[in-house]
Design a binder for these strands. Sequence first.
DNA 1: TCAATTTCTATTGATATCAATGTAATTAGT
DNA 2: ACTAATTACATTGATATCAATAGAAATTGA
Lengths: 148, 148
Amino acid sequence: MSNAVEIPYSTTLLVRDTCLCLHVQRAARALARLFDDALRPVGLTNGQFSLMMSLNRPEPPPMGPVATLLAMDQTTLTAALKPLQRRGWVDVTQNAKDKRRRLLSLTPTGKAVLAAALPIWESTHASLGEALPGGDLERLRRDLQALS
Amino acid sequence: MSNAVEIPYSTTLLVRDTCLCLHVQRAARALARLFDDALRPVGLTNGQFSLMMSLNRPEPPPMGPVATLLAMDQTTLTAALKPLQRRGWVDVTQNAKDKRRRLLSLTPTGKAVLAAALPIWESTHASLGEALPGGDLERLRRDLQALS
DNA sequence: TCAATTTCTATTGATATCAATGTAATTAGT
DNA sequence: ACTAATTACATTGATATCAATAGAAATTGA
């Protein structure tokens, strides 16, 4: 005859206030919406912008390192590439030296889209600086990097 | 006869290093995996844990405020509740006073699951403190809150 | 060389996320 | 009371996310 297992409301409030995972997820959703809204005119989401920007390199990278850079699962990257390929913004080709590898590159159209998105990113990102006091931005980035 | 639109590689590196949206998404994915792994034995994801914890209140809340608290779209909350209802961990009932509203509450089983998850959350969250120096945690939370 | 292992990516299934849209219930204005 | 506007939520369609699994290619060990 045990009572039902109950967590006190005070514990709930403590978890809500302190849980870093929750705070990061919340911020992630809020920032995603902010950048998604801003980038919508050029047809990109925040994730697609970050992905395409990471492909703007002298040498087309394979998938593994890109997934690591974005801290995402490799299967997520595979899926994320699909709509970009379909629109002709990203090319996925096989590496002749190692046929397991796919080389990811921006098409000319993709580069143009990315170039159109850049000023939007700049202004949106600048507006964030106003939400946070001065040097806090750099500090916040370091803290976040320590977590991923 | 214009050249193809190109963004210099140096700009790419700058965006990668400074984009707060990217850094937050990266940290969000990394923390999600960390908590998902830890909570897997009790059958919860980090998001489900946060959602259920937010429902542990004296009075069952309607959906709107919960969505706001979690900084998620209301349609996302509707979808997130589905698997929890199916497992019998969350009850969704109609408010008699205002039939538009749904009242969200944990079932006894749901409360037991949440209670089982709590020590896992505590130890996982404590391990985060080691990744970040002491007061940095509190500071980081404040910075994240300013963004959402 | 050949088998075992490792590396790199794709597929499947489940959940997460949001925009656009629709619907029912309530409230406000008259 | 009746219409118009608002509020609260659900549905649909597209993309995002990851675990589990599978497959193909390269590497290693004998």
